[in-house]
């Protein structure tokens, strides 16, 4: 099943030599533009949003980026590409009785084959090959693992996602596609695995089928990152706002709120807004929102601004190195 090569550098509009910081910036800019909440043309924005998320999932991770660059070197425009020797496809673990293939996870086929967590049991594939012996004895099918891209909105409210799982039986060569409805519970945290019973590899000799484990990957959000049920938002403030204090409107997962920045707020200081994170359980408990202050300086200043800063310099007794 050759997957079409994806040019992640083009997706993010960065060069192959881009630094991690440039990649992050490019991603944030595009994510803001194409986030389904803010974009005007929802349909194309959603596809684009998925594409940049996938590109960032790979290029934003030094390890995956290295792998990707190795793959890219073996790719040519004319006829797809040949994975370099020694490359194991993420999906099939190098020689199980079946091949499998996901759809609807929010990732492309290309991603699924090479970058998904798709190993069996979640450890390096070389370990996962059980001895084949004892023919005829019923043996349970292997578990299959994969990633599923979940937006923060979906994680907030929970959803049901159709996932198609194509399996190719190596013995018969027949492809079979199953569509299953996977329930993403409210408060599904990043890294959490959702078990779908009986949708792993088929059993052998009358054995039970394995399970499918889907690992939740939060789609990067232009405004928020998550850690467990807590949500983080970076708030850019001007130096005088940090020194004098200010009232700033900040976004949360459920509408904006007005946040009071106390006078004398330090850079990187965080403020906790209780109960504005992801749901924690069935009892309505929620994580918190942390607003992390980033003091930013103006890139260019006018003449008037310059003289104001100069005045400040002569008036101030502050010595940061004292």
């Amino acid at each position: 099943m050759p997957a079409q090569f994806k040019d992640y550098y083009t997706s993010l509009g960065v060069s192959r030599e881009a630094t991690p910081d440039e990649i992050k910036k490019a991603f944030r800019k595009l994510a803001r533009k194409y986030h389904p909440d803010t974009a005007t043309d929802k349909k194309t924005a959603e596809a684009k949003f998925k594409e940049i998320n996938e590109a960032y999932e790979v290029l934003g991770d030094p390890d995956k980026r290295k792998k990707y660059d190795t793959l890219g070197a073996n790719w040519n425009d004319a006829g797809g590409f040949t994975p370099p020797p020694g490359w194991r496809q993420g999906g099939d673990g190098g020689g199980p009785a079946q091949e499998f293939h996901f759809g609807g996870t929010g990732f492309s086929d290309f991603f699924e084959q090479y970058f998904s967590g798709g190993s069996r049991y979640g450890f390096p594939q070389d370990f996962s090959e059980a001895p084949r012996g004892q023919a005829g004895r019923p043996r349970r099918g292997h578990d299959i693992e994969g990633d599923i891209l979940v937006t923060l909105e979906e994680a907030m409210h929970g959803t049901v996602r159709p996932i198609s799982l194509q399996t190719v039986n190596r013995k018969t060569g027949q492809a079979q596609t199953d569509t299953i409805q996977v329930r993403i519970p409210p408060g599904a945290t990043d890294g959490r695995r959702i078990r779908v019973p009986g949708h792993g590899e088929a059993g052998h000799g009358g054995g039970q089928a394995g399970d499918l484990f889907l690992r939740v990957r939060h789609a990067a959000h232009p405004e928020f990152t998550t850690r467990e049920a807590d949500v983080y938002h970076e708030l850019d403030v001007a130096p005088w706002e940090a020194v004098l204090g200010a009232e700033i409107v900040v976004p949360t997962l459920d509408g904006s709120i007005k946040l009071k920045i106390p006078a004398g707020t330090e850079n990187a200081q965080s403020m906790r807004v209780r109960g504005k994170g992801l749901p924690k359980g069935k009892n309505g408990e929620r994580g918190d929102l942390y607003v992390v202050i980033q003091i930013v300086l103006p890139a260019e200043i006018s003449g008037a601004e310059r003289s104001a800063w100069e005045q400040l310099r002569s008036a101030s007794t502050f010595n940061p190195r004292a």
């Binding site: 049991y121 979640g122 450890f123 370990f127 001895p131 078990r195």
Partner: peptide
């Protein structure tokens, strides 16, 4: 479900290795 996964992983290690 994480426990289910851990146990399956342990069993696989025990059997295959």
């Amino acid at each position: 479900d994480e426990t289910v996964r851990s146990l399956r992983r342990l069993e696989a290690l025990r059997e295959s290795c």
